[in-house]
Amino acid sequence: MMFLVAAVALFVTMVLILVRLYAGPIVYDRVLAVNAFGTATVLFIAVLGFLTGRPDFLDIALLYALINFVGTIAVLKFFRYRALGDIPQMPAHPGEER
């Protein structure tokens, strides 16, 4: 019962965050929304595992937490340097070539 409350609340939160994700207006708003959405998704998967009585879902939630963090950092690194591998030389003011 209490997990139903949590699942509904997390679902509402995810919808609200999706509205922000759509509205923007700047790209970092969207990255922030994706990150918050990921946290909500991790908790949602864990709660869903309790709700359906399948604690194996926790492994998926843990994996999603790992991927969410790496994904956010990768997207930000790509925005900043336009490359994902080794950066040959770091520009002093990366914003200038925006």
């Binding site: 409350v5 949590a6 509904v8 939160t13 995810m14 609200l16 922000r20 929304a33």
Partner: peptide, 16 residues
């Protein structure tokens, strides 16, 4: 759990 759910919804409202 109820307080945590409330805080999650509050953070969604704040985002908007």
């Amino acid at each position: 759990i109820v307080t945590g759910s409330f805080l999650m919804v509050v953070s969604g409202i704040g985002m908007l």
